[in-house]
Structures are given as C-alpha cells and as structure tokens.
Design a protein around this nucleic acid. Structure first.
Lengths: 315, 315
DNA sequence: CATCTATATAACATCATGTTATGAAAATAG
DNA sequence: CTATTTTCATAACATGATGTTATATAGATG
C-alpha cells in the first residue's frame, strides 16, 4: 500500500508534539487540516492510529511505527530544505572562473584560497583563457566569471565589466638583481640582460613589446618564452633575466622575497583589469557570492598597492 | 525552504531510473505529470536539477543531493506501506483474548504458543474472566475474543458464538491414583477422598456440585479451593485428592504424566466451549487471523479427543 | 538528413489541501 | 456535580496541485 509521505510527516508531528493542535502549530498549518488528514489516513489504512476517545492523545502501536517513518521523512525534507537554502545563499554550488594565466596564478588563486576558507562547500572550477574565448564561454553559459584585462570600448553590450585595477605593468627581476641598486636606470643598463617572454598570443607579450619600444630598446634577447607564472618566477629568481609582469602580481609575490619590480616607468596599457560577467546573470548564487568576494578582495589589494606606492614616493 | 517530500520521491525516481519516462513508469504515473512536477520543482528552487539539453539526463550536483533525500523518503514510505500491509494481513497487531482461567491455562496457552511461532509480531494480550464480564468487554471493544463455555441460549444477539467442544467434564486424579486400578467405581470408593474445588464463582465449581449431586455424593470434603490450574495440578499430583476438570484440559496434559481422568460418567453440563466475538467485528486483521487459528486448533484437538475416546472404547 | 525516441507543452477534470466558523466531547476547576 | 476550558471533529467553500490524454519539439542515431 502506497502511503503519502506528507501524511507520515503529519502523523509524526502529531505524535511528537503531543496532539493535533500542537502538531498543526509545528507544521504551520491549521488544526482542522491536520485533523482531517489524520482521519483520512486512518480510514484508508482501516485502523485507528490513536486510541479513540482518550485525551491526551495516545498513539497505537501501528501509529507509532508509522510515525517513526514520518520522522524519517521529516528529516529528509528538512535536510533537503537546508541543501536548497545553502545553494540559494551561495554557500554551496559551482563557480566556473577563468582569466589570463598570469593573473589567475598570481592573484586570483590566492583570492580563491581565501574564499574557500569561508565557503568550503563551493566548488571552484578554474580555467585559463583570453578575452575572446572567455566572452564566448560567458555567452554560452559554460563560465560564470572572467577576470581579464580589457579596454572599456571592448566590452560587449550583453556583458558587464567591473574594472578593478589599472593595467599597470612593471619590469620584474630577481631580488638582489644588480639593477635594483642603481639610483637611475638607463637603456644601456637594461640592454645587457636578456628577457623572459610570455606566450606570444598573450596580452602581456604585447605589453612587453610596447614597454620595450617605449624605453627605446629595439634589440633585445629572449632566453625563455611560454611557461606559466611559476616557471617564469623560478627562472627569474635563478637568473638575472628580466620580464614584464602586472604590478599586482609582483606585489602579491613580494612576501616570498623572490622577485622585485624595477622603478622604471614603462607606460601602462590602456586597459583595466576587471571582472567580466553576464549583464543578466544566470541565477547562480554561489557565483554571485564569489564575484562580490573577488571584487572586494581586489579593492583591498588596490588599496594596499596604492598605500605601498605612496610610501615609496615618500622615500 | 520547505520542500514537498513527494517531489523528492519523484526526483529520486528520475535519477535512479535514468530518465523521466522510466521514472514515471517506476512510480506508476504518466510521463507528463513527472515532467511538470520536475519543472515546477526546478523553478521553485531556482536552479536546474538536471543539466539542460543533455540526453541522457544528467543530474546536477544539487539534483543529486536532493535525490539522495528523495531516496530516503522513498524508503520511509516503502517501509510504512509494508507496516500497513503486515497489519492488514494480520501479521502484525494486537489481539486481546480472554477466557475462563482453567481453559486459558490448560488449552489456550498452548494454542497461543503455536500461533506465535507463525506470527511472531502479533502481540497477544491474555486475561481471565467469566461470561458476563467478557461480554461487556467485547461490547466496549476492550477485548477481541473470548473463549468460554456457554449455553446456546445465552448468546446475545450482537455477539457471535462459534462452539467447538462439548462441555465435557471429568473427575481428575493423580497418575497412579488407587481409584484408577478399579474396574468399576462406587460412591463409597470416591467418598473417602477429599476434593479440590475451583473458585466458587466459576462455572467449574457449579459443575463440580452438579457432578457430585449426580453421583449421589451429598457430603464431601474440600481440602483446597481457589488457585490457578498450575496449583491445582500440583496439589492433585501430590495427593490423592480429586477434582473436576474439563476433559480437554486433562487430555492436553496427559503427556506430562501427572494427572488422569476417572472413567466415571458425571454428566455433561448443557454447554459448549466456544469462541465468542462481535457479530460485526471491529476491523482487526490480527484478531481475525488469531480467531481462525484458535478455531482450527480446537477442531484438531476435538478430532484427537474423539479418536482417543474411540480407542478407549475398543479396549 | 531522416527517423526515432524522449521530453515538453496544452487543455482539462478532479481531488486533496488549505482556510474560517462552529459544534461536540473530554479534561479540569470550583 | 456542574461550569469552564481545552482539544478535537465537522461543515462549507476556494484554490492549487496532480492526474489524465493528445500533441509538439528537440536530442540522438543511423
């Protein structure tokens, strides 16, 4: 015999709360509703679930057995409700985030780590890519958030770009690099060192070219190209090579005492690092929560960077 | 958020059976019904439970979590249905049975033991009483079955009496009693032994009086009165006293080699031992099952008694 | 690309569930 | 024992969910 699980819930509520009135209260329903459901259930089963005429209500053996099952149903729905609530408040779910490799490794990875300390049940799925590909993925809903440098004019109408940091690049070198001891750096100082180049299709590579053009270096040696941030940093730290990195990345890595930035103006690209997402986001509470966390973390990073630069100026 | 347990059941069925169609089949409902319930649930939750557009259907993480709860609901309702089914088929429940003390102890207790070997989950609540009290209890539904000796004329209209055994009484004595060696027994043989009397308000006591009157004994000594069957038998076995017992009781006890019956005609009361119950029984499947078991056991007892008596005649 | 199969939608009937108002009965107090 | 209070049952009605069949649509498959 198939029994409606809601009837079992109601039975459990009556038994566990000691009466129709209390049971109805506990379920947030009216007492007559509960009363009728109970009679209905009893007549279907063909046996009393409570000893008739006795008050306070005392369940029969059968009533008690069924109430035990009702308790189990109640617990399952409670847990289910909790799962949904956690999902809707973004405490659970899946966030798919992507960005340019160097930013993801150098800055965003740390932000994700901090996010997961608060939201351990959110699964963050990270991947890499550049603007065009990520815009496609945002559009076909295989990505929730892109963290990329972008020019304001490049932002499509159906997407929303929230800029965070100016696209500030620096020349990076190992800690203790000879150039760091110079008060002022000339082109000839630089030209004796070779360069580590980012992947040629990356914005950073174009930045490198632009930076070198700006400071007048026509002829430069590249002794390493491609590779993720970790390899770049390793090579940088173990040699006197130079490279171009976003300042934020160098800033975040300064605790590790491996690399530093030359105080040489190389001109900023006309871009902002920012968060790109759908104008009308698909409902993904965890994604929304992650997005605002990322933005707040970037704001905090931005403040720390500005503060640091001011301190540098004071010297 | 409160979630309908039936929706969880449906979700679990879809996930576990690999599709809407199969899930609908498993639940015995139509596919469109399931389909709509699913969309409803998804729109209420505000998130897809299945990855859209992929066939075969693949549940999201959220969908899987909720389906797990649905499985638990499904299991609870399954168990509940089973509990009800067992109740309705009389495999579970409560049977309240009562009867005259000597019969209950001497015959019915054994029947109950055999019943419980087949139906271990039926709780049998046994009590003692005589006709009037038991009739009252049957009427106010505090008793399911009375097993008592009754005259046909005494049966109330609202009750049903199913006679089983004739009210045959015998004079009982210990095994090896001197009287058992006599070919024929006279009044003076008997009068030298004293009597064990049942409780004075019992039918058996009146039977004793009638029996003694029948055989002409006006003056008899009673050296024990009251007590349950167990004490009566103990005293009987340890002395040369006599008493009156239903033949069926003595018959059932003959394996124990403690007591025997004198082959002395003492006249039967105008009663039948039988099963008394409501004409229109309150729905108690276990009670019905027990009742028919009792009747069949009595019939078997009746056959064995008759067979035994025939064998005695042949000697 | 055509066909097949599975899912979604439409339209409709009905039953269960919810409500409030009120009656009946058991328990409790005086 | 009677009066009061509490608790459960019933009535009457509105509505929403669930079920049905028929049919359209969209992935999957050859």
């Amino acid at each position: 015999m198939k029994i409606d699980p809601r009837h079992l819930e109601i039975l459990a509520a009556i038994v566990d709360n000691g009466g129709l009135t209390e049971g109805a209260e506990a379920l947030g329903k009216s007492q007559p509703s509960i009363s009728r459901t109970l009679s209905q259930l009893e007549s279907r089963i063909g046996a009393p679930l409570f000893h008739p005429g006795r008050r306070p209500l005392k369940a029969t053996e059968l009533g008690l057995s069924l109430a035990a099952q009702g308790r189990s149903v109640l617990e399952a729905t409670r847990v289910a409700g909790q799962i949904v609530d956690r999902y809707r408040t973004g405490h659970t779910g899946l966030v798919r985030v992507a960005g340019t490799p160097v930013f993801m490794d150098g800055v965003v990875a740390g932000i994700i780590a901090r996010f997961q300390q608060h939201m351990p049940d959110v699964l963050v799925e990270q991947s890499y890519g550049y603007a065009d590909a990520l815009i496609d993925r945002l559009r076909n809903a295989t990505l929730d958030l892109a963290i990329i440098p972008l020019q304001q004019g490049q932002v499509p109408d159906d997407l929303r770009f929230q800029p965070i940091l100016p696209g500030l690049n620096v020349i990076a070198c190992r800690n203790g690099h000879p150039l760091l001891r110079r008060k002022s750096i000339t082109l000839s100082d630089i030209s004796q060192y070779s360069w580590i180049a980012p992947p040629t299709n990356s914005p950073l590579y174009r930045d490198l070219q632009r930076a070198l053009a700006k400071i007048g270096a026509k002829d430069f040696r590249i002794n390493f190209s491609g590779g993720s941030l970790a390899s770049v940093v390793s090579i940088l730290a173990g040699s006197d090579s130079l490279t171009v990195l976003p300042y934020s990345v160098v800033f975040e890595m300064k605790n590790q005492n491996q690399i530093s930035a030359l105080t040489l103006e190389i001109g900023h690209p006309d871009r902002m690092l920012g968060v790109l997402s759908k104008e009308t986001p698909d409902k993904n509470p965890a994604g929304e929560r992650f997005k605002s966390f990322v933005i707040s973390q970037f704001e905090s990073l931005s403040r720390r960077i500005n503060q640091h630069r001011q301190e540098q100026l004071w010297r």
